[in-house]
């Protein structure tokens, strides 16, 4: 006697149904875990620092401040204005330093250079340093995200 085909296909269908259901259930369990393992670390919208600490900077010098978990670099220009950068190399995230004698920013990790305006001029960095906007209000210096 020939077995009716539906006997087998019913089992295959149920197996597939259970397997697919388990996969969906599994991903439902896993997605909150994936959420959990990345903690939120929002970048600050703005940072305020006492102006007194930065008042006496000479032109073409740079002083650091904390931009969230990253170093910020506050620079005084020839005209006496303040410019701020996120002091993190755009190549692979190392912290940069300001070389006063050459008026350039330098990343020691892979020898990247930026000019005084934060433009990438030598080495592997693909883009300029990120700029932040600076304003002075009374005794405080406010650094904000640009754009």
């Amino acid at each position: 006697m020939k077995l009716p085909a539906s006997l087998y296909s019913r089992r295959a269908f149920l197996n597939g149904l259970i397997g697919g259901w388990l996969a969906a259930l599994g991903s439902a369990f896993i997605s909150p875990l994936l959420k959990y393992i990345v903690p939120p670390t929002p970048e600050p919208d703005q940072v305020t620092v006492p102006f007194a600490d930065y008042k006496d900077m000479a032109p073409h010098t740079v002083k650091g401040f904390a931009w969230g978990n990253k170093p910020g670099l506050l620079q005084r220009t020839e005209a006496g204005e303040y410019v701020a950068f996120v002091g993190v190399c755009t190549h692979l995230d190392c912290n940069v330093s300001f070389v006063a004698e050459q008026r350039r920013f330098y990343c020691a990790c892979h020898e990247g250079w930026y000019d005084e305006n934060g433009l990438n001029v030598a080495g592997p960095p693909p883009s300029p340093l990120r700029r932040l906007s600076v304003s002075v209000e009374g005794d405080t210096l406010i650094v904000k995200r640009q754009g």
């Binding site: 650091g64 170093p71 692979l92 190392c94 912290n95 330093s97 330098y106 990343c107 020691a108 990790c109």
Partner: peptide, 22 residues
């Protein structure tokens, strides 16, 4: 966390070739 990267950074010896490539 706030200090500039030090001079002469390098990974373990078995990653050196990737480091130099980068």
């Amino acid at each position: 966390l706030m200090a500039p990267a030090p001079e002469g950074i390098k990974p373990e010896w078995y990653f050196l070739f990737m480091f130099q490539t980068l």
